[in-house]
Design a protein around this nucleic acid. Sequence first.
DNA 1: TATGAATGAGTCTTCATTCAT
DNA 2: TATGAATGAAGACTCATTCAT
Lengths: 206, 206, 206, 206
Amino acid sequence: MDVKSDQSTEQQIIEVAEKLFMEKGFALTSTTEIARKVGCNQALVHYYFRTKEKLFESIFERKAQLMLSAILKMDDPTQPFEERLRKLVENHFDIMVENPQLPFLFLNELLTNPKRLELLTQKFQMLPLTLMERFANDLQNEIDKGRIRNVTPISILLTVLSLNLTPFIIRPIFQKMTNTSDELFNVIIQQRKQENILILMRSLMP
Amino acid sequence: MDVKSDQSTEQQIIEVAEKLFMEKGFALTSTTEIARKVGCNQALVHYYFRTKEKLFESIFERKAQLMLSAILKMDDPTQPFEERLRKLVENHFDIMVENPQLPFLFLNELLTNPKRLELLTQKFQMLPLTLMERFANDLQNEIDKGRIRNVTPISILLTVLSLNLTPFIIRPIFQKMTNTSDELFNVIIQQRKQENILILMRSLMP
Amino acid sequence: MDVKSDQSTEQQIIEVAEKLFMEKGFALTSTTEIARKVGCNQALVHYYFRTKEKLFESIFERKAQLMLSAILKMDDPTQPFEERLRKLVENHFDIMVENPQLPFLFLNELLTNPKRLELLTQKFQMLPLTLMERFANDLQNEIDKGRIRNVTPISILLTVLSLNLTPFIIRPIFQKMTNTSDELFNVIIQQRKQENILILMRSLMP
Amino acid sequence: MDVKSDQSTEQQIIEVAEKLFMEKGFALTSTTEIARKVGCNQALVHYYFRTKEKLFESIFERKAQLMLSAILKMDDPTQPFEERLRKLVENHFDIMVENPQLPFLFLNELLTNPKRLELLTQKFQMLPLTLMERFANDLQNEIDKGRIRNVTPISILLTVLSLNLTPFIIRPIFQKMTNTSDELFNVIIQQRKQENILILMRSLMP
DNA sequence: TATGAATGAGTCTTCATTCAT
DNA sequence: TATGAATGAAGACTCATTCAT
């Protein structure tokens, strides 16, 4: 039951906690369980992170950072708009293939704990607005040129989010109800990525 | 804080419980809090429902029934396929307009509590298979006639689910981060319904 | 689950309570369970008997009375001492054949609840002392005549109690461990009665 | 009320629990009371033993082991049968002099809690059958030689149990009703041991 | 760095009892 | 006579947290 001990105990705690938080959310994960799975004393979890809350935040923030920066840094202005959009969907999707449980964790915590939402809002509002603005500008440009139908940037983002998030969020439900193996699901998921791109592109046609 | 109304205490308990369960999920809602909000003794909650679990189930099942039957009874075979699909999306969307927190409750419980997923799976498998089969047949028919591109029924359903569920699920996050009022959001939501139909229809074009 | 309703509800409550008290003792029997088995409202139990304690006492006392009077009235001074002793053992044994769970109930309550012991002690001390005295006298007489070895009356009573009570008390344990059916046990019990008489008689030989 | 001694708190909990379990049985003893008597937090009882059940079992099993092993190891085949029987009674009796409340605890739990009885039955059936068989053989041998009347081994064991257990079980009742001091009772008990041996021996005469 | 011991607050649940009807 | 509603007290148990070592 213990984790390999060639990592520092602190690191082990983080990893076990991350796994449990992702599986069951903050509230349903107990420090007792984390300690047990790590194979250390319960007090040690608090020694390193003082509170369960802080432990969670450190993990949550790292994940948020990871996802955000991954999305941010992938935009290449030299490419045509449509290509960039395609890449956006694709990369966003790929990140979640790597962290399939993350969407649920985010949703769960943000919806459940006002404090968490507050925090993210602050962080979000400190983002370079230019990014969003540039996206809006580029989009408007395409619309003006008649290459994309008239649609708000928010609407596009919501479409991307909807198409990309949902398969990962409902994955366990889907697998259980349709009796789908992990392997098969991974195949389906890859097809879904292309499907999502196609759906988005068609949705933007003039 | 007390809710002194003309309803029976039992009804009050159900309503308060429903509200809390929807906001925070099963695990984070305590019978103590329900009782406090109702303004009664905690033991009374157990007097009526014996266990927190049973109280939840009675609410959960009623909601599941409501949603399921609403979806099932709205299909009209005399209409052309495309029209029926359009109605499906529209009705599904409308149900959630009425119960905006339900999607999160469902997700949360099904993902968090294996027992709940088990239960729903059983109930689902007792559904008239013909329904799904007929949908698949009709779809295949359209594909054969070249009116719809080659796509699996599951894929369509996933698209509908994705587009329809997500706005409701992320609503609090969205409102908080974009500082959107309830009124404005309700407007946006109504536009989104049409948007979703449009996206789906375009995605099916040959 | 409900009891036949051709008796008064009060009587039904008494009977169900008696059964449950005998099986599980006072503490482990709840008025809720009594009411459920009777098929009536829980409050009704309290309507008739005010408290669970009083309900128990009324049953307990009746049983105690029954057992006591049965023992008391069976002594026939015209018979020889040995014959009376034999009858004592036999009758005492027979009473318990009729009420096999009574010994455990008595033991359990008297040992567990000081109040109960107090009560019985008082009742016991109001017994006609002559009875015990006469028994002691008669015994002394036999001893003097050399027909019985020198032994205290208490000692004899303890022997009778030991031999007669134990089979009934340990019955469930015995049956479970030796895998003995009810029928077989009833046969064994009847043999045991004779055995007990024999053991007692031999124990008194000069 | 607190027991501030030089023992570890864990040991104190065990001892207080043992005392209370013996006096009132499992069901009537609360972890709250144990904690109060020890002078510690109630949660600590659960910290050491997780559940009330486990705490009880650890005590119960230790006592059962003690009693069983004491009985098992005392048989010396080089002695004549009668002598061994005498020793059996004597040793069995002496064990209970050391643990006078144990018989009640055993009875109470075995009769009240089916799980407990199940457990003991299993443990009992794993006992060396030879032991019982050898006893039966030796007995048969004596019977054949005309030194003991025809009697089953079970019957003998029941007699021993009856005679030996009862004084300890009814002790509090006896003392209360006859107003007997602890000192006097201890004297009586010692006489009773000899009495029991005598009764048993006489009961076996051809 | 790590741990065992300890605690207070909180969880769900059961129970005997009361009261208005 | 009978009931449904309601309550306070108590039960076992869990948890995050602290502290001395």
